[in-house]
């Protein structure tokens, strides 16, 4: 095969593979991307129930209710709006009232959320970044204000 022929084969196969990859990426982007909102943003957006989301904020003090069979319910707040989250399963070690949390799951109704995973922060030093940002938007948090988050 000539150099030109070889080059054409190469380019054709390259385009084919890249085309397939681009198709896969676009397809997957449509179905498996999850948006993140804080409680206030969530209230503004008025999304339809069934939307898959990640929400984050602080676990409201005194809001945690543990039920039968590891079911747990708590309120995520940014001190402006609140979302009640229902979850069945184990919550992470660092899940506590008054601390940052991120929940991924499905919106059930206005202010009602059913989570299928709950994440807390990795260590006591800082908030999940999304949560910190969402709280900053509400003016509840600024860098260095809460004592545990400021140890730098």
């Amino acid at each position: 095969m000539t150099r030109k022929g070889r080059r054409l084969t190469l380019i054709a196969s390259m385009l084919a593979v890249l085309g397939v990859a681009a198709g896969l990426v676009l397809f997957a982007m449509r179905d498996s991307i999850v948006f993140f909102y804080g409680p206030s943003e969530l209230a503004e957006k008025a999304l339809s129930p069934g939307t898959r989301l990640r929400i984050g904020g602080l676990v409201k003090d005194g809001s945690v209710v543990r039920g039968e069979n590891k079911s747990i319910s708590f309120v995520i707040t940014d001190s402006n709006k609140e979302v009640r989250v229902a979850y069945v399963g184990q919550v992470p070690d660092l899940f506590r009232e008054g601390q940052g949390v991120v929940a991924e799951g499905v919106l059930v109704g206005p202010g009602q959320f059913r989570a299928d995973s709950v994440l807390a922060k990795h260590d006591e030093k800082y908030m999940p970044r999304e949560v910190a940002d969402a709280l900053k938007k509400q003016g509840v948090w600024n860098d260095g204000a809460p004592a545990p988050a400021a140890s730098k």
Binding site: V17, V20, A21, L24, V25, F27, A28, M29, D31, S32, I33, V34, F35, F36, Y37, R54, E104, E130, D133
Partner: peptide, 18 residues
């Protein structure tokens, strides 16, 4: 300013077939 997360389903769908 939109926050999204691209998780395992995305990578399973794209990386796997390739």
């Amino acid at each position: 300013g939109e926050k999204i997360s691209v998780g395992a389903p995305f990578f399973n769908l794209t990386f796997g077939p390739l």
